[in-house]
């Protein structure tokens, strides 16, 4: 369970050295788009050495490897399979690609990136694949394949967002929204994050460390939500009934389960 997934280029020592500084719940070390082809080897060597020397318990580490049709795919997996990481982020994900990755890994999670119309159509099957712990919407490639432009209000990805959020919630996995690419627009980032949260996303991917605070804030339960959740759980324990009334509103099992989730998040993030 993470609120923020921060991408960090795998070939930048000054960023790698500080990956525990930025307070992101998860860090995605990138071997794909942010690393130019002639630097992929260097990134693998750097990360292998770094993560063998330093281990981190306060946050999860994922590695975005190159896609399964890329010649770097296997090299990326082999260079990192023995490292203490939570899992892999798989670009251009499809059922075959996930199957291929599963052949090489053990005890590692997979977060497929849904970044094509076909992947979106297959998202329900992808969500049920082995080791898949969440889906990440890759809106830039998705809209590129559709041949449409991105807009500030994100109308063009509304369906994809809604669909992914529904599927992830249906199968109990993480739903991770696409990054907000204007790193200097704090107001836009907050609005975009709130929109994603309101559609059912549990987290958001980030492309810059300065975005972490806002995203963590939006995806954290508010003080009021925590207060209300505590009241619901207390009343539930006291009444010992499946359904009861609180402040004139009916409280039943789904609401009690939701309150438990809120408190679980609050505990995890020390809120």
């Amino acid at each position: 369970m993470s609120r923020s997934y921060l991408f960090i280029p795998g070939n930048t020592p000054s960023m790698i050295q500080n990956l525990d500084v930025f307070e992101s719940d998860s860090v995605i070390i990138d071997f794909e788009d942010s690393v130019i082809s002639y630097d992929k080897d260097a990134a693998r060597i750097l990360i292998n050495n770094f993560l063998k020397k330093f281990s981190f318990k306060e946050f999860d580490i994922y590695i975005r490897i190159n896609d399964s049709l890329n010649p770097n795919f296997l090299k990326d997996v082999q260079a990192t399979i023995d490292l203490d990481i939570t899992g892999y982020v798989l670009p251009k994900a499809g059922l075959e690609a996930i199957e291929e990755l599963n052949k090489h890994i053990d005890n590692k999670l997979i977060i497929p990136i849904i970044e094509s119309p076909l992947a979106l159509l297959k998202a329900e099957d992808i969500a049920q694949s082995n080791n898949v712990s969440g889906l990440l919407l890759g809106a830039e490639d998705y809209t590129k394949e559709l041949g449409i432009n991105r807009t500030l209000n994100g109308t063009e990805i509304l369906y994809a967002r809604s669909y992914i959020a529904i599927i992830c919630n249906a199968y109990g996995i993480e739903s991770i929204d696409t990054p907000y690419t204007n790193k200097d627009d704090e107001i836009g980032l907050r609005e975009d994050s709130i929109n994603a949260k309101n559609l059912g996303f549990t987290a958001k991917a980030l492309i810059h460390p300065n975005q972490v605070d806002i995203v963590n804030d939006v995806f954290s339960p508010s003080t009021e939500e925590i207060f209300q959740a505590k009241r619901i759980i207390k009343k539930s324990e006291e009444s010992n009934k499946g359904a009861f009334s609180l402040d004139g509103k009916m409280i039943d099992l789904p609401i009690i389960e939701k309150a438990k989730k809120v408190l679980e998040k609050a505990k995890k993030y020390n809120l």
Binding site: N18, V21, F22, P209, N210
Partner: peptide, 11 residues
Amino acid sequence: TTNPIGVKIAK
């Protein structure tokens, strides 16, 4: 500064 390390120090 917008440097993320500087931003963290300031925070």
